[in-house]
């Protein structure tokens, strides 16, 4: 069953440091060719670890149902 939340990275603000990639327990976040982080929404379990670790604050958690921010 998919989680209620999933992570979404803002490509324009991402600094592609890879902190999220290293933190993700499900390998759902990858830095795409050194440019920005991309989240595989299907794999994401919505734990929020990537959001906590992101130094640029470019990851936010969203609700799956309606796409609204979970905050």
């Amino acid at each position: 069953m998919a989680s209620k939340r999933f992570a979404k990275a803002d490509r324009r603000r991402c600094v592609s440091c890879g902190a999220c990639e290293n933190e993700c327990p499900k390998d759902a976040v990858k830095v795409w060719r050194g440019c920005y982080a991309v989240v595989n929404e299907a794999r994401c379990v919505g734990c929020g670890k990537c959001e906590k670790v992101c130094p640029a604050g470019c990851i936010e958690m969203r609700l799956r149902e309606d796409g609204e921010s979970a905050k």
Partner: peptide, 29 residues
Amino acid sequence: FKPRSWCSFCPMGSMTQLICKFKQRGGSP
């Protein structure tokens, strides 16, 4: 701030990201 706050403005990180973006211009996942 956060443990890796330095990474948000690290000059090497900015420079390599610029290079990567230039190499991937027009591309997307």
